[in-house]
């Protein structure tokens, strides 16, 4: 069945696409889409997937040193979730016509980017609490909005992730609250972690709108529904009262509530640091990539064994059928 005999022009297809976007329709893998929409989504979704995978490293660093069996079990479950989230988004990205192997290769060769936040080190146990609170908190702010993205597979992956992610933030905040109510040393340790993670977390929502070349287009296509600065404001507004509730201070002397905008004003962001980290010069960029390359290399025997097992079973089936 081939109902369409003459190919409609690109302009006509594009007009239909823009109309569908404007009407709030969901774009599915087989639908016609502008090449630029496809490549922008591949870039954005693969960065997101890579971030989930690399994001396992700073936290995985503390699994063996978690202070109790309960905390160890929670951290294991959380890190396992991040692996799952990476796989959901890789699978969504593949619907755009790029292979998993190519995506993994782009990460391992350093061609693809991942979130700047994972290039900072986890120095103390308190960092694990603060990552759950700040980093997962910021990710939830971002992903809740992406769950309404115009591309169906991306939106569906986000819905799945958001459902699972709430415990991530809560377990982190619980660690933070416990330490904040602990000994003076524990409180100092968690305040130090807050001081180190606050600005990188504020930055992880992306460059300011005035310096984000992709935002306008992605907003028009309803891939993004809020700008980076809007997401950042939301994250800050949510987090400040949570810090006050556990008696911790955020390292920004300009942070104060502005009744006119019903939100917090905050101090200038060090974008030079952000771009340095994005360009590969953060504290842990090289270490993170090397860890991923090692994991890929060290997993080779598992992949080979799986192939050998499957080939052996295929042979056995053949010979028993003969």
């Amino acid at each position: 069945m081939e109902p369409i005999e003459t190919q409609p022009s690109e302009e006509a297809l594009n007009a239909v696409f823009e109309r569908r976007i404007a009407a709030g329709e969901t774009i599915e893998p087989k639908d016609w889409m502008p090449e630029r929409y496809r490549t922008q989504l591949i870039r954005m979704m693969s960065q997101h997937a890579h971030s989930e995978i690399v994001g396992m490293l700073p936290e995985g660093n503390w699994i063996t040193r978690a202070p109790s069996l309960k905390r160890k079990m929670v951290l294991l479950a959380k890190v396992q979730d991040e692996a799952g989230h990476g796989l959901y988004i890789y699978c969504g990205t593949e619907t755009l016509g790029i292979d998993r192997a190519e995506l993994v290769d782009q990460l391992l060769t350093g061609k693809a980017k991942y979130s700047s936040i994972f290039n900072y080190p986890t120095l103390t146990w308190a960092d694990i609490g603060v990552i759950g609170w700040f980093v997962d908190g910021a990710a939830i702010v971002n992903q809740t909005v992406l769950a309404k993205a115009s591309y169906g597979p991306y939106a569906r992956a986000m819905i799945r992730i958001c459902k699972e992610e709430n415990f991530h933030k809560k377990q982190g905040y619980e660690i933070v609250a416990t330490l904040a109510n602990g000994t003076p040393e524990q409180k100092a340790m968690v305040q130090d972690a807050v001081n180190r993670w606050w600005w990188p977390s504020v930055m992880m929502l992306g460059p300011s709108d005035t310096n984000s070349p992709n935002t306008a287009e992605l907003i028009r296509w309803r891939v993004k529904r809020k700008t980076n600065d809007e997401l950042r404001q939301r994250f800050i507004d949510l987090t400040v009262p949570q810090a006050e509730a556990v008696g911790l201070t955020l390292p920004d002397p300009d942070l104060r509530f502005n009744p006119d905008k019903q939100g917090y004003d905050f101090g200038p962001i060090d974008w030079d640091e952000f771009w340095q980290v994005v360009k590969g010069n953060g504290p842990c960029n090289r270490e993170r990539l090397q860890a991923r390359r090692d994991a890929h290399e060290n997993g080779r025997w598992v992949r080979e064994a799986a192939e050998a097992y499957s080939a052996k079973h295929a042979r056995n089936e053949q010979s028993s059928a003969a």
């Binding site: 799952g84 796989l87 959901y88 699978c91 969504g92 593949e94 998993r100 992956a157 799945r160 799986a306 192939e307 097992y309 499957s310 080939a311 079973h313 295929a314």
Partner: peptide, 19 residues
């Protein structure tokens, strides 16, 4: 729900269960 890569059906089922 989504998709997985696997060399055969049995491992696809296990991967699907895990993910």
């Amino acid at each position: 729900a989504g998709s997985v890569h696997a060399p055969d059906a049995e491992m696809a089922l296990q991967n699907a269960r895990d993910v």
